[in-house]
């Protein structure tokens, strides 16, 4: 990410260190993750320690420190989804993609993550692919959906 872009983000938040998480979110919206260079630059500009930023970035679930796949798959692991079979759905995705949650498929096309409750409990099990909610998902449904996305890529 170019430093000019980061400067713009910093300016938008008046270089206020309290807004550091909002700045992280904006960087991640653009890059898909938080590059080390961006964090170092932010630390420099805001007079914060890199270790402090690293701590924040690893504490919160939403931040990625590694590049993500072209398609982001989030599997909801909330209680309602769990009792309606979310573990089987996750198993199926892991098997088909050949990765475990938190990883990116070897061709870089899919990133798989689990989320602790998306607040769409009536639709469980819920899977969100690139921001699109897929309710009442099942292993069989996942297989079909993955095929669809693979075709698009």
């Amino acid at each position: 990410m170019e430093t000019r872009e980061i400067d713009k983000i910093i300016a938008r938040y008046n270089a206020d260190p309290q807004e550091i998480m909002a700045m992280f979110m904006e960087i991640q919206d653009k890059e898909g993750y938080l590059p080390k260079s961006a964090l170092s630059y932010l630390a420099d500009k805001l007079h914060l320690r890199l270790a402090q930023l690293y701590r924040l970035a690893t504490f919160y679930e939403a931040f990625n420190l590694k590049p993500q796949g072209d398609h982001q798959i989030h599997v909801c692991m909330g209680t309602a989804c769990h009792v309606r079979g979310a573990p089987q759905v996750l198993d199926k995705l892991q098997q088909t993609l050949g990765i475990t949650a938190g990883e990116v498929s070897s061709d870089g096309s899919f990133g798989l993550k689990t989320v602790n409750c998306l607040g769409a409990c009536a639709l469980g099990p819920v899977v969100v692919i690139d921001g699109e909610y897929c309710g009442h998902s099942s292993p069989l449904k996942m297989e079909k959906i993955l095929k669809k996305y693979k075709k698009h890529t």
Binding site: L39, R55, T58
Partner: peptide, 25 residues
């Protein structure tokens, strides 16, 4: 110096330098 910090949370919580790489500071 603030060269190291906690990282992650829960049972995965560790102490390490940023990105678990040699800390310049």
């Amino acid at each position: 110096a603030g060269a190291i910090s906690f990282a992650s949370r829960g049972s995965a919580r560790t102490v390490e330098p940023p990105f678990a790489e040699e800390p310049e500071s």
